[in-house]
Write a protein that binds this DNA or RNA. Sequence first.
DNA 1: GTCATGCATAAATTTCCCTTATGCATAGAT
DNA 2: ATCTATGCATAAGGGAAATTTATGCATGAC
Lengths: 310, 310
Amino acid sequence: MTLNLPPLSAIRAFEAASRHLSFTKAGDELGLTQAAVSYQIKLLEEKLGFAVFERKTRKIDLTQKGALLAEGVVEAFSRLRQTFQDVQDADASELVVSSNTTFAVNWLASRMFSFQMQNPDIAVRLVSYGPWEKPKFDQADVTISACYPPPKGNLFIPLIAAEFTPLVAPQLAQGIGGINTPADLLKLPIIDPDDPWWRTWFSAAGLPDADLTKWPTSRMGSQALEANRAIAGQGVAILTPYFCRQALQQGQLIQPFDLVCAEEDESWALSYPPRNKNSRKVRLFQDWVVSELGRDGLHCPEAVLIGSDD
Amino acid sequence: MTLNLPPLSAIRAFEAASRHLSFTKAGDELGLTQAAVSYQIKLLEEKLGFAVFERKTRKIDLTQKGALLAEGVVEAFSRLRQTFQDVQDADASELVVSSNTTFAVNWLASRMFSFQMQNPDIAVRLVSYGPWEKPKFDQADVTISACYPPPKGNLFIPLIAAEFTPLVAPQLAQGIGGINTPADLLKLPIIDPDDPWWRTWFSAAGLPDADLTKWPTSRMGSQALEANRAIAGQGVAILTPYFCRQALQQGQLIQPFDLVCAEEDESWALSYPPRNKNSRKVRLFQDWVVSELGRDGLHCPEAVLIGSDD
DNA sequence: GTCATGCATAAATTTCCCTTATGCATAGAT
DNA sequence: ATCTATGCATAAGGGAAATTTATGCATGAC
């Protein structure tokens, strides 16, 4: 098992030379000079202790042992190439997107069909993660995340500012005679009162001491679920208006106040490891996401390189 | 066919790591540090554009694509190792000796049996070359040659001085009333009168102008053949006494004069390319040759490295 | 909590691979 | 026969890439 192979570069040179029966042509194939191939073959012969080529005057021939070697070596390299080809084909045809549930449900799900129509050769696999999980940066080709900064070295494109403001079903607002001041909100059930967004928003609204403890803790963890509860009239939720556009347009939810807050460093962003910089499928996906956002009037900055890991 | 493989060193690291599922152990196997393996795997992943290992906390696992790769890569390397193992086994078990015909016939042939008895695991193949051919330095594991200096870089052991003196069958000498002076030789048919040894010897014997043109040119090219003609009484030949010891002892040939000449730089020598410096079979053969010569009272100097090619 | 294990990373070093430039031999052409 | 073109060998030098050393970090085991 643990036979020490000669230097692999020498084996590779031999493989090519044995197919071409020419150092010059082998060099061409490998992108090397003839001298480099000659050097590697000599190296191989010294390691092996016998000649693999017979040097005729203007050509070379495999020696008996060289021919024996060539057979197996060519096969082995063929297997290698096939293996890498196969796995790269497999890779090119499957795009793994990791996204948090909110974005997956509110944004990706309804649009993915359009991407698949545009790129029928790419199978998309969506790996969503809940709000208490970390994004699976290393298991996905591309990740859409909020709150969690991608690993150092990743490429990063901010997509959507993570703005938030209370949203509520119109019937519910009417039920308490309309919502006119931020304090009115406290008359209603607060959906997910532990969400730090509430604290931030109430502070910005001039009520830093609003008592949010009287409602049961029930982190849904996903804006999709919270939005559904709000639409159902179960209370007031603090949500990102962009993700509720449809409900807002259709009057299922209303935004009582213009005050929209944003947490520093919390915004949805697309990111991917640097190795995917030239990946076709990632490029296509990124372009598609950006263009979809553009259709909603949102414009994304250029990709930037994440430099720090904090 | 011409898919560009990732760096082979990275593939090799991956191959070992995929078997051990451990960078540390892979490093041990390859004689590298853990850091080197880690580096190579990272390199591979960047070239490929996807991860091949999942980093768990104190272990690593192949990713889906990694597992796909591993299968083929391990197989390919296994094929490589097998191939090299086979050809090295074949190499170890066959010793190719290139020798000129004279030495092969007069020395090797009768003794080879003893070598084969001592080394039953080594099959000897003798490639002899005629006097007008060059030694096949590069086709043989070890070469015994005279006159032709081995290629630069070869290891070289002088074996037998290429001395020469006229030898003749006793009946033939008697036929002309005995041979008393060098000039007497000219009364007899000269076997291979074009051999430059004749010129050298007659000059040394004080007859620089001896007319050797009256006999037909008939280079036998091999002392064995010339010796046989001399023994048969067809003429006088210029031969190396050592190679005719038996005939001299048995009285089939006599040496009329003590004058023995030697051409500069013409002596039988054993040589082999530097790559065989540590070859077991070559070492065994060399030791055997030297010991056989020792039994004849000849002692060989140490091997020297040929430094010039002239 | 402490220690041990295993991988990641950075910087420095070394190795060795490759190129350039040249030589040599010879097959093929004139 | 001579000349030219082709193909491999070799030496020297440069430089990229592989490796080591020295860390850090996370976590599982005790």
